[in-house]
């Protein structure tokens, strides 16, 4: 009897013999027939990684990518049947993958590609109209809390991850090597990465726990000429602000 344990081990390790008891019409062990399943698993998971990480593939080339996918898929097969989430461990894997050590930015670029997919499948949330913000007196606005859409995802890197993404996906010029912060926003259904101005990442992180005015103070402390109007403009244009909670009315 062949248990699924033995089948799985042989499936993922081509150096293992075909399990006995898997036979062809003549009753003989059938390595090439078993190899169909081996190939289906490796090819389908490799294809899922190719689709999910087009920039990584361009950066390392097809042959290198397929080789690293072959190692990755055996170390990290999907955890669930939701292939839309496959590849979560790729950034950490790339960080520790010796043949990729001369491209130290790969892991962060993989994080950006994962975040693009996460944004694509994130829960829908209707953005607020810019006029809603404009109608609130500035003092009240500064005490309000702003919530961003589930599809809005912030990434910070010591590498130019937006520049690398744009050079490969939009044929933009090769970027200078400096750190970048990126906000992925999904105005309707297509996630788009935006390169953020200085201080905006600090502002967005502060906004998670602080009202607008306090977040502005935090950002200005980090970057003296931080431009709140420009920051709000980026968020509104990307449809990323989904709710505004006004301060509680002061007790009489």
């Amino acid at each position: 009897m062949i248990c699924q344990d033995a089948f799985t081990v042989a499936l993922l390790d081509p150096s293992q013999p075909t399990p006995a008891g898997l036979i062809d019409p003549q009753g003989q062990t059938a390595p090439k027939r078993f190899a169909v399943y081996r190939n289906n698993v490796a090819a389908s998971l490799t294809e899922a990684l190719r689709t999910g990480f087009p920039v990584i593939r361009k950066l390392v080339g097809d042959r290198f990518f397929d080789a690293l996918a072959g190692v990755y898929l055996r170390a990290h097969p999907p955890k669930t049947p939701l292939m839309m989430h496959y590849g979560q461990e790729l950034p950490a894997f790339l960080q520790g993958f010796p043949p990729a050590q001369n491209l130290p930015y790969l892991a962060d670029v993989a994080r950006l590609e994962l975040a693009m997919r996460e944004s694509y499948h994130a829960k829908d949330a209707a953005p607020i109209e810019p006029s809603v913000l404009a109608a609130i007196p500035p003092e009240t606005l500064m005490q309000s809390r702003i919530a961003l859409a589930p599809s809005a995802i912030l990434l910070r890197s010591r590498w130019p991850i937006y520049g690398i993404w744009a050079a490969n996906m939009l044929d933009a010029p090769t970027p200078q090597m400096h750190g970048e912060a990126v906000l992925i926003m999904r105005p309707e259904y297509d996630p788009t990465p935006h390169l953020l101005p200085a201080g905006m990442a600090t502002f967005l992180i502060a906004l998670e726990t602080q009202p607008l005015g306090a977040a502005l103070d935090t950002a200005t402390a980090a970057v003296a000429d931080f431009d709140l109007g420009a920051a709000l403009g980026i968020l509104l244009a990307g449809g990323a602000i989904t709710s505004l909670t006004l301060p509680k009315a002061p007790a009489p």
């Binding site: 062949i2 699924q4 799985t8 289906n40 698993v41 999907p78 049947p81």
Partner: peptide, 17 residues
Amino acid sequence: AWSTHDIGFLNDLLPLP
């Protein structure tokens, strides 16, 4: 068919006796 084992989801329709 089966497609999930302890180690995870294998993304293929695997055969049964």
